[in-house]
Design a binder for these strands. Structure first.
Lengths: 334, 334
DNA sequence: GTGGAAAATGATACGCGTAACAATAGACGC
DNA sequence: GCGTCTATTGTTACGCGTATCATTTTCCAC
């Protein structure tokens, strides 16, 4: 592999001059610049960022640690981060943790060993451990998607609580009174927040909330919905805490001969695949995941380049609520 | 940031001894090893892979260049590559090219500047340019998903031609005679191969093939299907060259009041989202994308570690054909 | 205790690019 | 022609970890 010294010899200049041609061309006379550029071409020299990184203590890479790539919004996170990083001239080192906190720490350590300039973390849980680990190693980190109450750290997230309230209020406005919530694991903060948003809306309407906790999976949604549809006073509407749960619930309804939205309304969270032919297509909360990811990346790189200094910033991005075919007034009203 | 020299000073040994403790513990006496390990813990030393990489000429990273991340199988590629890489102790540098050959070359160059040990390329086109660029820079590359006839390079792919034949034969066996193909852009080799597989099967059955070329998008599928459904002798079945095209075609059928599968059978390619509630769920060809990605990664790392030498290897993985609800005998037979 | 081999540890230099400083060349005024 | 200033180019050393060779220590046999 040709080095800067090979180029220098070939152009009969000092290595430093070649470096200058590459990084600060104006400081070199036209004649030598052309000579060096010719040598670079003739030798097909490609700069070695390892050497640069060692000397400059900057790698020009950011780490992206995603908890669960099978989740459809992970792909939006990857899209947003990688395009924003490219726009700023950074590479992306990618890792998935398969929802394991241990693996998350291992991957974070690997990123630090690689001396990435900063890390975007879409964490498994919102415990402070992972963030603490990175900051204790003098690393820069931005948390994507989750609130981090115990850390002074940059966060980009949505207001899950308000969004769940909005979904619930949509159903209340349609005339529903028996509304249940199918939520995720209570140890995951977004599941808790969404449940709380639902509960708040129900209580404001003078109704008794009914939250079921499960997992963010189709199977869990199917199971929870099957159980709830078999109960005597079954709800006329379901607020679900994720698209997977909503899909599972829809399958359960179909299986039970309950038609959507005539007999049962369902709202979803992160109905991200707008190109899918779903009949009915889900009404629900949409998080601007790609925008969140680009915002997190911009924030991180601003930190890296010292454009942004000071205490951790929390960016809460607005969700939108899209009404499609999966919600309608309850059967009594028809 | 603490270095190996800080640890050495703290443990009162030579830097080399610390390096040995980390990489070859058996060559160090128990007493010093413990002393060094204590120092590592006390100083929270984290090795700097930049230094290692510069010295060893190995970064322990592989590049993954994906053409279009919005395609649902891109996520399977990312999953497969990142988990296989992690199993072998490698990191993944990720880049997307948004289907632009220029961007592909830029990203490949960036990977080479970073001195990744090898690259997995899911290319935009199967022109030799990208592969040539990497190999001319003495880089190792494995092509994922596309045949590369003009290069001596490792390839992991499926037999698209045979798979399309299989889909066509499934429809023929159901009794269809008027079968059209909705394909992708003719400049993309998989679109051509799938069209050829379809044509071969049709000709073997003594029928005249009818191929429409469009794009691998829902919109294009919708457009092609709308046009074809409006023709006087409209087909009773469609072989589509991608899941997006199939979805668009299904939407067009729904819009035209043509019911699937009673009036129109549709087969798809890469019906990857098995968790989606599609009614009817598509019959079609399934590529083992995740397995292909892990196979490509294993192959690449075997090359990197010189476990595999010699000329480029082509691994053709078998597709499966799944029969679901989107195909049935043609209307005349009912 | 001594010789010799083996084990353990250390010193040096290197990989590649660049910051900091040094040196040289050219331009200009007088 | 000489001094001075600026533009250009060069030299040196460094960042971090490790291969290589050199040195020291340990161990064992006799």
């Amino acid at each position: 592999m040709t080095t800067i010294r090979d180029v220098a010899r070939h152009a009969r200049v000092a290595p430093m001059t070649v470096s200058r041609v590459l990084n600060n061309p104006d400081s070199v006379s036209d004649a030598t610049r052309v000579r060096v550029e010719t040598a670079i071409d003739e030798l097909s020299y490609i700069p070695n960022m390892i050497g640069q990184a060692l000397r400059n203590k900057l790698t020009g890479a950011i780490g992206l640690v995603v908890s669960d790539i099978t989740n459809p919004f992970a792909i939006q996170q990857i899209t947003g981060v990688s395009s924003a990083a490219r726009d700023r001239g950074f590479s992306v080192v990618f890792a998935q943790t398969e929802a394991s906190p241990d693996e998350e720490l291992r991957q974070l350590r690997s990123m630090i060993e690689r001396r990435v300039d900063g890390i975007i973390l879409s964490p498994v849980f919102n415990t402070p451990d992972s963030v603490d680990f990175v900051t204790s190693a003098k690393g820069t980190v931005v948390v994507l998607g989750y609130p981090m109450p115990d850390n002074d750290v940059d966060v980009v997230r949505c207001d899950s609580r308000a969004a769940a309230s909005e979904a619930t209020e949509h159903l209340l406005a349609l005339g529903h009174r028996r509304i249940s919530m199918l939520s995720g694991p209570p140890e995951i903060v977004t599941a808790r927040e969404r449940s709380e948003g639902y509960k708040n809306a129900m209580r404001r309407a003078g109704l008794v909330p009914d939250v079921r906790y499960g997992a963010f999976t189709v199977a869990s949604g199917f199971e929870m919905a099957t159980k709830i549809l078999a109960s005597e006073s079954r709800p006329t509407a379901l607020v679900t805490a994720s698209n997977f749960i909503a899909l599972g619930a829809a399958q359960a309804a179909q299986r039970a001969g309950v038609s959507i939205p005539a007999d049962l309304s369902i709202t979803t969270f992160d109905n991200s695949r707008t190109d899918v032919v779903l009949d009915p297509f889900f009404t629900g909360v949409i998080q601007p995941v790609t925008n969140m990811a680009t915002a997190a990346t911009t924030l991180l790189i601003d930190r890296i380049e010292h454009r942004l200094v000071g205490p951790g910033r929390e960016i809460v991005m607005p969700t939108t609520f899209e009404v499609h075919g999966s919600t309608a007034p309850p059967p009594e009203f028809l």
